[in-house]
Design a protein around this nucleic acid. Sequence first.
DNA 1: CGGCAAATGTGCGGTACCGTACATTTCCTG
DNA 2: CAGGAAATGTACGGTACCGCACATTTGCCG
Lengths: 238, 238
Amino acid sequence: MSDPTQSSVRNRLLAKLCPEDFNLLKPHLELVPLNRGDVLITPNQPIEYVYFLEAGITSIIANTASGRRIEIGLTGRDGLAGTPVLLGVDSTPHETFMQIGGSGLRIETERLRQALRQSSSLHSLLLRYVQAFTIQTSHTALSNGSHRIEERLARWLLMCHDRVDGDDLALTHEFIALMLGVRRASVTEALKILEEREIIQTNRGNIVVLDRLRLEETAGDSYGVPEAEYERLIGSFR
Amino acid sequence: MSDPTQSSVRNRLLAKLCPEDFNLLKPHLELVPLNRGDVLITPNQPIEYVYFLEAGITSIIANTASGRRIEIGLTGRDGLAGTPVLLGVDSTPHETFMQIGGSGLRIETERLRQALRQSSSLHSLLLRYVQAFTIQTSHTALSNGSHRIEERLARWLLMCHDRVDGDDLALTHEFIALMLGVRRASVTEALKILEEREIIQTNRGNIVVLDRLRLEETAGDSYGVPEAEYERLIGSFR
DNA sequence: CGGCAAATGTGCGGTACCGTACATTTCCTG
DNA sequence: CAGGAAATGTACGGTACCGCACATTTGCCG
């Protein structure tokens, strides 16, 4: 597997690094395909690799002993999977898996740790990402507690749309329901409403964003704060 | 203001530091009273001080442009207020204020930054705390999305009880409702049920935990994961 | 100790969402 | 191209919680 060059890299964090920091990581980065459903981080197991996503979307899921599951955040090429490593922690109760297939540049946990010790500017950027992600999780908490399904769905579609090329999202109602922690039938109904308004178009296993602006209107104040904070702390998504 | 000694300090993080790290902070720590309602961190304003709590509880609140507010986490002497500083960030969209009065050892942001640069073991411990707090926030998201008010209330009372001496919590229904993002009347009703079961006892502006074990049963799986993770990463609460 | 504001109790109609069930459609695979 | 599984549409009774309103109680302060 040949080393990536910084100019060809699509991951926002890697692209943002100074050349020295990038070169520190480069020999250890391995491009791997990541298919839908692949589990990148298993709950309470040592995190073996940190993944800088190049394409696709990961979900981070909180779960309880009794089997409740809900998404607490998602990441695409704006970020990475394995934030606990950046905080010096070797495992987490959360699960991280691929929600939409893609690819990523992965690095062994221990190699990344070495690099973090060597370069404080590297560590600094990645910690800023942790903060940005924390804000996303916080707003998920807010949204779960105080928005209606339609708004939460719109927010969630927007967050996916932000992280994908084009306007197609390969997602089933069942899956979205799991992510939002609601009934599948509720998702079907909310999507139908959005489709009637011609904001989205749906096909079996696929959703097309037709009118992003009105999708943002639908999301209301559930969308925006974490995105603005990402831009402030890291830079533009795209 | 005389410098604190490590043995007399009640904050769990400070108590956990090696003596060298503690001495690094010690000359800059200032003991301040923190009264209910005091705002420690104002949204989108520079964070001037980081507060290691000695007594009392802070709430961290997410809010939107349109005025929705909900608590996304809380901290007592298990932690500190000002986690963004540990991640190299100077401000946050969240607000942090005193929910129950107490006191804290505060340090100027810039002084703490210097100390973090000087001691990686200090930085390491505090980053592990950030991870522990992140898990708390994540489970708030889960709880907000999938538990009934009664369970969420029980969880929240337990989290407060963990951080207070004795069994009394000086809280109004109105305030709890704000924290949970629900109606005040819903809180009144849920508390009444707990009181009928003799799990708590309520007086005007005060709640007494009578039977913690059954409160945990009521909370079900909404309580426990973040607490276990704190113990794993930092050590015992008490 | 009387008056007042804050805190609490309670009621009522409305709605968002749930659990469950089942029919229908779509795609894939043999 | 038939058969089956996955995905989607839809229906229905039930419930948790809402918004709002108003009465009652409690503690405090003049």
